[in-house]
């Protein structure tokens, strides 16, 4: 089933806050082999001017993937996740994510297109702190492969 094109331009209410934990940042950094003290040692992070350990650049995916369930699990959109592959990903950072941040996501569908039997959906997630400070924006393009005929 093709995606519901009327979802283009739609936004969702802000998500519940995600509290970035120091151990989660360390766990994520270790999982990708990022050993820099900024990710692991609060003293090193403080010496560099941060309140706590700094998350690696792709860490926000932990937060935005969870938030994007708002979109992909909406039955009206008609997305079959077993046929979905990740097409593009972009992060634009206003600042680094640090442990202790309480992050809120606002999801928007920027574009839905259909081409060659495949569906393409581009989502934008604006991530701020609970107090409204801009932290980053993430864009994901997902491709729903056409069904086998």
């Amino acid at each position: 089933m093709p995606l519901d094109l009327s979802f283009a331009g739609r936004s969702w209410p802000p998500t519940e806050p995600y509290l970035v934990g120091r151990e989660k940042v360390r766990e994520f950094a270790s999982a990708i082999g990022a050993t820099d003290p900024l990710h692991h040692d609060p003293e090193a992070a403080r010496a560099a001017g941060y309140p706590d350990v700094v998350a690696p650049p792709t860490f926000p995916t932990v937060v935005t993937m969870r938030a994007s369930r708002q979109i992909i699990e909406d039955p009206q959109l008609g997305l079959d996740y077993s046929r979905v592959v990740h097409g593009d990903q972009r992060f634009a950072y206003a600042r680094q994510v640090v442990a202790g941040d309480s992050l809120i996501c606002v999801n928007t569908v920027e574009e839905i297109t259909q081409r060659g039997g495949h569906d393409f959906i581009t989502t934008r997630t604006d991530v701020t702190t609970e107090s409204g400070e801009a932290v980053l924006t993430a864009w994901s393009k997902l491709v729903q492969r056409g069904e086998e005929r």
Binding site: I32, G33, A34, D36, L38, H39, A48, Y50, V54, P56, P57, T58, V85, H86, G87, D88, Q89, R90, F91, A92, Y93, Q96, W139
Partner: peptide, 24 residues
């Protein structure tokens, strides 16, 4: 994430990235 490690290692700073995009 590994591409991010390659970039930050080269930059010499784990917190240097301001914009990061890829196509899989």
């Amino acid at each position: 994430a590994l591409a991010g490690r390659a970039v930050t290692a080269w930059a010499g700073a784990a917190d240097a990235v301001e914009d990061f995009s890829v196509r899989f």
